[in-house]
Design a protein around this nucleic acid. Structure first.
Lengths: 180, 180
DNA sequence: GGTTGCATGTAAATGGTTACATGATTGT
DNA sequence: ACAATCATGTAACCATTTACATGCAACC
């Protein structure tokens, strides 16, 4: 799913500027399962305009560059619907943390504990931010609930299994205090 | 985490050829949280060899190209350890399915149901394949358990909330049979 | 006085995927 | 027969990230 389609998706929620679109991927509802940054959003909007799938109104502003507010055209709405019908690419998760934990035995135990604690905190913060949001179309709430379910499961797993991992990591080695 | 580091990671589990390394990302323990394909693995192994982080033994073979079996050198092992100590990039999840479900109201309800059912089946198949595996170093089992926890939570969420979503999607529209 | 937020955009560099090229053997 | 598995590698192509370029206003 390319950035063009992603922009169409966000614009289907209402008109927006490139800057505002980015926020959906940075802080908004899309941040958990899609990524897009300025460098890809602005060119994508340009192409969508050439394709006639969005229209633009420029609002002049004082010290800043004009704000370009994009709106879906009928053609754009159709393009979005067609894109949504295509077979979805398989989900892809990329986690450096899990690589590190996979090789926990190659890291200092304190480092492992710190990594896990930090990630738990991140999940918890994320969960709190997510609870309670606008969710008018049924899909919005459904997807948010899914995110919540996954993050909660991840946080709980880390909380419940951290001690066990740490015990196994330090089991073979003599305690640092005495045997150094 | 680039493919070079990923190759070092796999090789730390034992010597392997490029072809065998790929399997770790396609079917093996890494497939849930990292991706790498031939086009990136072979060049990465070449670079690692130039850097002296892996050594190679070529095994001649009958009709096929020589099999090049790579082994970590001391320098490679050190490089891996250092890479594992670096701050992990934040996890990134990319899911086209969740975009589709976010806009469920723009899709035919049957399509939505099919997408969810298919994904449940995929999760269940994945979970079955995962259960029971070698997990000598503690990290291996920990990471696998985390994957299992997440996939289970996702599958259960979809199973438990599918009906609710479908009901909300068809609530407003009159039943197709009568009102078409 | 420094950081954050607003606001757009380009260009270079990175990195990876996809497709191609080759080809025997084994299983269905 | 046909597909899959084994086995390596290159090159064109693609997309995205990162850095650059610019600059005011508001907040701390």
């Amino acid at each position: 799913m390319d950035v063009k389609t992603l922009c169409l998706s966000v614009l289907s929620l209402g008109e927006a500027s490139g800057y505002e679109i980015r926020k959906h991927f940075e802080e908004g509802a899309f941040r958990h399962f899609q990524t897009a940054t300025f460098g890809s959003i602005y060119p994508a909007l340009g192409k969508l305009y050439e394709l006639g799938q969005v229209s633009v109104i420029e609002h002049e502003q004082d010290g800043r560059p004009d704000k370009k507010v994009y709106t879906l055209t009928e053609s754009g709405r159709t393009a979005l619907q067609q894109a949504l019908l295509r077979d979805p690419a398989p989900d892809a998760m990329r986690s450096d943390l899990l690589v590190q934990l996979f090789f926990a035995h190659l890291l200092p135990p304190e480092k492992v504990a710190a990594l896990i604690d930090q990630r738990i905190a991140e999940y918890r913060a994320c969960i709190e931010k997510m609870t309670g949001c606008t969710k008018a179309p049924p899909g919005h709430g459904f997807v948010q609930g899914m995110g919540l379910a996954i993050y909660s499961a991840a946080a709980i797993y880390l909380e419940q299994n951290k001690a066990g991992l740490m015990a196994r990591l330090t089991a073979d080695r003599p305690e640092k205090d005495t045997a150094e």
